[in-house]
């Protein structure tokens, strides 16, 4: 589905990503583990077109999408739900969600159907649909962000730290939904600091340090790996 080959990204003279190669196959839930600043967000921002790659290739179903405009990339089926959510705080939940389907706005029937699906996934959003997104709680805002991304009909969903700053109980709810989205057929690439919880729901994982992939493998293998446990799970 998505394939990164020797991807490099620079911010000025700082190399944020160094020859990163990874892939997510159709239907997979792949998790990226790594500390703050390891390069997880850089990967996502580059795949969704907000950053330009300095080298390497990004391929979606074999087609090169590296360096394309973000609007084109969304259209091709890669939807990025960013860290910090990046909602439109003064707009209603409804408006945030419908803008998520911006590239499909000609297809109002389809937009309404996606909206129903999102409301089914997050029933609380139906009750809050006329409230300003910025007035919701952190967990609810995260639901709006995920919902908005789903409105873009992702073939592959890039989820950057969806549990950041949320209460433990809400973290579990959010990750349960991520699992459900994946089970419904969407390929998911998930960045998480909550390594234990993330590995529990993922098929495979990559560990990133200093802009490089330092380890990869099945979730189960990593869950029992001594180094991963020490560095990211704390047990």
């Amino acid at each position: 589905m998505l394939q990164l080959e020797n991807l490099s990204v620079r911010y000025g003279s700082f190399r944020a990503l160094n020859d990163v190669s990874l892939h997510a196959d159709e239907g997979e839930l792949v998790v990226l583990l790594g500390a703050n600043g390891a390069g997880k967000s850089s990967i996502f921002l580059t795949v969704s077109g907000l950053n330009k790659p300095a080298g390497g290739a990004i391929r979606l179903k074999g087609k090169e999408i590296g360096g394309m405009k973000p609007s084109k990339i969304v259209r091709s089926g890669v939807v990025h739900c960013p860290e910090g959510r990046k909602l439109f705080p003064k707009m209603s939940v409804m408006k945030n969600l419908t803008l998520g389907a911006y590239v499909y706005s000609r297809d109002q029937v389809g937009v309404r159907r996606s909206l129903e699906e999102v409301f089914e996934l997050f029933p609380i959003l139906r009750d809050k649909r006329y409230e300003a997104a910025g007035s919701l709680s952190g967990g609810q805002q995260q639901m709006v962000a995920i919902g908005r991304a789903l409105m873009g009909r992702p073939k592959i969903l890039l989820l950057d730290e969806p549990s950041l700053g949320l209460a433990p109980l809400v973290v579990k709810q959010v990750l349960d939904v991520v699992k459900k989205i994946n089970e419904n057929g969407t390929t998911v690439l998930l960045a998480e600091q909550n390594a234990f919880a993330a590995l529990k729901i993922a098929h495979r994982a990559y560990v990133i340090e200093g802009g490089r992939i330092v380890m990869e493998g099945e979730s189960d293998t990593l869950l029992h790996d001594e180094n991963v446990r020490k560095a990211y799970i704390g047990a």
């Binding site: 973000p70 609007s71 739900c81 960013p82 911006y102």
Partner: peptide, 11 residues
């Protein structure tokens, strides 16, 4: 309201 958010929905 959010330039990055707008780009990410394809605007």
């Amino acid at each position: 309201q959010n330039r990055e958010g707008a780009s990410l929905v394809g605007i």
